[in-house]
Amino acid sequence: MLKSLNPFALIAERWQPSAKFVERAALATVVMAVIIVVTGGAVRLTDSGLGCNTWPTCTPQSLTPTKAMGLHGIIEFSNRMLTDVLCVFVGVAIIAARARTPWRRGLTRLAWAQFWLVMSNAVLGGLVVLTGLNPYTVGAHFLSATALLTVAVLMWQRSREGDLPVRDLVVRPVRQLSWLLVTATGLLVVVGTVVTGAGPHAGDAHTVHRIPVNWREITQLHVDFVYIVIGLTVALWFVLRAVNGPTAARRRVVELFAVLMAQGVVGYVQYATHLPEVVVGIHMLGSCLVWIAVLRVPLALRERPDESGAAGAADIPAQEPAVPAAAR
């Protein structure tokens, strides 16, 4: 009787989404997570961060922007409404994961984690406005969006896998190198966030508090981390070749290297041209693509078969962990 009162159970009784539908729903949340980062950047780069001067309403008297607020109010309010669209996509992912038979609890939890991250980031967005675009709250807002993107990528990966225990495809030192690469990239993103907080694009045409560090010096630190990440990427590629690692993993490392190179070109152009808004926006998109690419590398070094024994990860061949020839 209690089960029949569960709305998700009722949906599952009447609708059975295919595995492909669940996978596409998960991928859609990845795309929307990227879009919310880029559009959030557009709000800042157009000086529309305070287009709506309060939260959760746009003005103390109006939920929506008024005519007097002009284009800035429309841009800021549109970004807020895009969060509602994101919630719809996450909601579809939750329902699809829960309705699919057999029910995959881990996949559903990842979908719900996205919902709570969206809600927390909405509150952070409100704090950004209420604190007058304080750079620390702006940075926390961006990093929370990156956390959402991380969980979305993990759900997308899990939607293409089975539920049996994870099976490693390479030896432990190779896996550790891949996670070192992820850690270095995470630090690169954090330092890039500090660069944003110290840089000239504050999000509003009026005077806004900035992080009190030398913008050019922190930019150089950001570049140093870029070199570290590129070096680790190249090193991992050579290691995977030496141990005859999975073809899919080597391909993903190459994809990561290509994205890093493109992002490096964009970063150099934006620095040399004194940070034009359009180029900075492209760089924000690139940061999302770099993060997605680096997360996919360690995920390609293991597999999670389904009950039939199939690898499940769509492009990862089942094999024993590779061992260097010298160790055999």
Rank of each mutant, 00 (worst) to 15 (best):
K3E: 15
S4F: 13
L5D: 09
P7H: 06
W15P: 12
V31G: 13
M32T: 10
A33F: 08
L45A: 08
T46W: 12
T46F: 13
P56W: 09
T57K: 15
T57G: 14
T59Y: 08
P60W: 12
T66H: 07
E76R: 03
E76P: 11
S78E: 10
V85P: 11
F89A: 11
A93H: 02
I95Q: 01
R98Y: 10
R100S: 01
V118H: 05
V118G: 06
S120R: 07
T131A: 11
N134C: 09
V138T: 07
A152S: 14
V153R: 01
W156A: 05
R160Q: 11
L169G: 03
V170G: 07
L177N: 08
W179G: 12
L181M: 12
V182F: 09
A184V: 04
G186H: 05
G186N: 07
G192L: 01
T196E: 03
T196Y: 04
G203L: 05
H206I: 13
T207D: 14
N214F: 07
T219E: 14
Q220M: 14
I230T: 09
N244C: 05
G245L: 03
A249K: 06
V253P: 04
Q263E: 09
Q263V: 00
T273D: 13
V278K: 13
I282Q: 05
M284Y: 05
G286S: 04
S287R: 06
W291A: 02
W291E: 05
I292H: 05
V297C: 02
L299P: 01
L301M: 07
L301C: 06
E307F: 02
E307L: 11
S308P: 11
A311I: 05
Q319V: 03
A322Q: 09
